[in-house]
């Protein structure tokens, strides 16, 4: 079903803003393969302008096959994590048939910067940058302490399960990459002991964080990969070198140190996680990203996607290979 979002937004603005409300601005921010993000604003007589974000699924969704949760699941999730103090953007509206927009929700638009490279290098963030890793640790502890909302339909993943799932995808690709082979075997025999499972964000990295130049982490975005799993998965993912944006010397997102992340996590009530455990999950993160790059190339090679971006991402596998080689050389 094709939807003309720009045509439907004025009606939504009226519904959200009440009598006399108008759509003041609307702009598509990004379009992934299956999800669109729109920024829009609602103005009503005698009320302050409201800046909002619409997240909308633009391709059919199979909740059983997909790793993503539904947008209504995401809505229940961000409401739940906000109750424990984690900064998800407040939910404003879960769209229904009356809106004619398909599957989508509306949240407040939080001001700040999400572009990883700017966050790690722009002088505007110099003052706040040293606090970010600790804040990330504190926020992750809050997320991990949240009781998972039943209606979110979250799946469960553990280390060996994730490793096996990505190895299967790699095998099916027919690729022969020695460092990925070595990493699959190495991580299998060095898998961390299972830990009590918690609610995870699932894609907690520099790029999905809204950063304010004055207060630091203002919001955690993109909850669609949330699942139940090992706390070290989220802690390791934000340390994957692919999202350090040219600053490998600052392991947490290109802005901070491991010790700040882990200390913030513990101070906010998270169960202690060793650096060794974090680095093992970080290695699995690099391996997963490498396999995802292969998958994106394959979606082009198989004719599913036509964008030039897809085959080019296939050339990012080598970045994950050097990162994995460095981790294994360092004994993880």
């Amino acid at each position: 079903m094709s939807v003309d979002v720009l045509a439907a937004l004025p009606r939504l603005a009226q519904r959200l803003g009440g009598e006399g409300a108008v759509l003041a601005a609307a702009e598509r921010l990004s379009g992934g393969a299956s999800m669109e993000t729109w920024a829009f604003a609602v103005e009503a007589p005698g009320a302050a302008r409201r800046d909002l974000i619409l997240r909308r699924r633009s391709a059919p969704f199979d909740p059983d096959a997909s790793r993503s949760i539904s947008l209504s699941g995401e809505a229940s999730l961000i409401t739940a994590v906000r109750a424990t103090g984690a900064p998800a953007p407040p939910l404003v509206h879960l769209c229904d048939e009356q809106d004619g927009l398909g599957e989508c929700h509306v949240t407040q638009r939080i001001a700040g910067e999400t572009l990883g490279r700017r966050i790690v290098s722009d002088p505007r963030f110099d003052a706040v940058r040293p606090q970010l890793a600790r804040q990330c640790g504190e926020i992750l502890a809050q997320i991990h302490a949240t009781p998972p909302p039943a209606q979110a339909g979250l799946k469960t993943a553990d280390f060996l399960g994730e490793l096996a799932r990505y190895e299967e995808v790699y095998r099916a690709s027919g690729a022969e990459r020695p460092i990925l082979e070595l990493a699959f075997h190495h991580l299998k025999i060095h898998a961390p002991e299972p830990a009590p499972l918690v609610l995870l964000h699932g894609d907690f990295r520099n790029g999905n964080l809204m950063i304010s130049p004055t207060t630091g982490v203002a919001a955690v975005l993109d909850w669609e990969l949330s699942h139940i799993g090992d706390p070290a998965e989220d802690l390791g993912w934000i340390c994957v070198n692919s999202w350090r944006f040219g600053r490998p010397d600052r392991p947490v997102g290109g802005f901070g140190d491991y010790s700040d992340l882990l200390e913030g996590y513990e101070a906010a009530g998270g169960a202690p996680v060793s650096l060794k455990r974090l680095r093992t999950w970080q290695a699995l993160g690099s391996l997963k990203w490498g396999v995802m790059c292969l998958m994106m190339y394959q979606s082009w090679a198989g004719g599913l996607e036509a964008s030039v971006e897809r085959p080019m991402i296939g050339r990012r596998v080598s970045e994950t290979e050097i990162d994995l080689a460095n981790l294994m050389e360092a004994g993880l």
Partner: peptide
């Protein structure tokens, strides 16, 4: 590991010569 690393560094010089990793020289 030394051989695999040397091979992937040659590949990286083609794919993404500006990619900075934990073994890169400081900025």
């Amino acid at each position: 590991l030394a051989a695999l690393k040397a091979n992937v560094l040659d590949q990286l010089a083609i794919d993404q010569p500006n990619y900075r990793h934990e073994g890169s020289a400081p900025p």
